[in-house]
Computed example of a mutant assay.
Amino acid sequence: MASSKDRQRKLARAKYDRQMARRAERERVRRRVMAGVGTGLALVLIVGGGLWIGGVFDSDDTTSTEAGDTCIWTPLDASKNTDLTEVGTPETTNLPESGTETMSITTNQGDPITVSLDVASAPCAAASLSYLAGKQFYDDTDCYEIMAIGAVHCGDPSGTGQGGPTYTFYDENTPVIPDPSASASATESAVLYPKGTVTLIGNPAGSNGSQFLIFFKDYAPTTEAPYSIVGQVTGGDDTLAKIGKITTVADDAGEKVKPKEKITIQSLTVGADDAATVAPSASAQS
């Protein structure tokens, strides 16, 4: 698990690594220039080295770096996991990195659940959800677990916990557990996942795909904060509360997390138009 996390974080820092590699190479060139033999050769190298250090010869690469990857998607081999669904990968550049987007989840349990996606804090998670929604990845899939921590688990078409797209990406916007020696007031405020929080859930942790949780009650973890936050429920509270009250039965592994009543995502959409789509239905009900 640790090696997987390290690999993803290294990929996420690819642009930084390239910059550092270029800087190191420039420094080596500078040292060679300063230690060059022959006055004429040294002069040529000094001029050339000065231009190199100034970035004259790597202007194209500098442009590429400045418009570098916003997100890195680590590919998975579907032939090694038949629960994965081949859908390609989202773009890596020119992705939104500020503001919010609206995610609308229509289920068989009532009014749509609307979520404000925090693009500024979790741009890659928002980009992935938007991409998969555009592929109708979530449509007609079941939320197959109601977890004891007070969250419904959705986003795996296979219903096994092993499914998702053929890529993963790293954690963003993961809350921090308060210091156990902190004051009582700090300890009391350790609800890191308030009711209505939407997070990603990776398998293994830190390796995210399509799976997500919607918390229908507050959750205050005591040892680690395993989920990265992507948004907050802004509508459909009654539907979420209804889902949270569904009785659970044992699944194939013997864990009492399987909803006795099906929770089916009929459609999931992401985008600026979603708010306009949801608004008429709200006004029609008033």
Score class of each variant (00 low, 15 high):
Lys5Asn: 11
Ala14Ser: 14
Asp17Thr: 09
Arg30Gln: 11
Ala35Tyr: 00
Val37Phe: 02
Leu41Cys: 07
Leu41Lys: 10
Val44Trp: 02
Asp60Arg: 15
Thr63His: 10
Glu66Cys: 02
Ala67Trp: 06
Lys80Trp: 05
Lys80Tyr: 07
Asn81Ala: 06
Asn81Thr: 03
Thr85Glu: 12
Gly88Val: 09
Thr89Gly: 10
Glu91Lys: 15
Thr102Met: 12
Ser116Arg: 13
Asp118Thr: 01
Ser121Asp: 13
Ala127Arg: 03
Ser130Leu: 01
Gln136Lys: 15
Tyr144Val: 08
Ile146Lys: 04
Gly150Cys: 07
Gly150Val: 03
Val152Gly: 04
Gly164Pro: 08
Asp171Ser: 15
Thr174Lys: 06
Pro175Lys: 02
Pro175Val: 00
Ser185Asp: 14
Ala186Asn: 11
Ser189Glu: 13
Leu192Pro: 06
Pro194Gln: 09
Gly206Met: 05
Phe212Glu: 05
Phe215Val: 11
Phe216Thr: 03
Phe216Val: 02
Lys217Arg: 14
Asp218Cys: 09
Tyr219Cys: 13
Ala220Leu: 04
Ala225Gly: 09
Tyr227Ala: 00
Val230Trp: 02
Gly231Thr: 00
Gln232Ser: 08
Val233Arg: 10
Thr234Arg: 06
Gly235Ser: 13
Gly254Asn: 05
Gly254Tyr: 02
Ile265Arg: 06
Ser267Phe: 00
Leu268Asp: 01
Thr277Asp: 14
Val278Gly: 05
Pro280Trp: 08
